[in-house]
């Protein structure tokens, strides 16, 4: 399962809820305002520990978040990488 989150974890509980359903072999992709969840030193980042987490690069750049600001272990993907993830995981769940 690929879990896609597009809401800020500081404003909505989408990320929190989604992580409750995360299983071994799943992946999480943070897009749009969801990318704020991967900020190192942020309160929300603890939820990502030990999970397979990617953020969408163009959405990060738009928001002024550079790779150095991301929590350790978080990967950056471009739009092609987004497609690869959806292909690699048999199902996609978008947590609105």
């Amino acid at each position: 399962m690929l879990h896609v989150v597009n809401k800020s974890p500081y404003e909505r509980d989408s990320l929190d809820t989604c992580m409750g359903y995360y299983q071994e072999g799943d992946a999480v992709l943070l897009i749009e305002d969801g990318v704020y969840g991967a900020l190192a030193g942020g309160k929300a980042v603890s939820k990502l520990a030990g999970k397979d987490v990617s953020v969408l690069g163009p959405d990060m750049a738009a928001r002024g978040i550079s790779e150095e600001k991301l929590a350790d272990g978080v990967k950056v993907v471009d739009y092609a990488g987004f497609v690869d993830l959806t292909v690699a995981k048999d199902k996609v769940q978008s947590w609105l």
Binding site: A61, A62, I65
Partner: peptide
């Protein structure tokens, strides 16, 4: 506070 982050580049979106 995210509105004021420096270095925003929206060319990709």
């Amino acid at each position: 506070v995210f509105q004021l982050i420096k270095g925003q580049d929206t060319s990709g979106i």
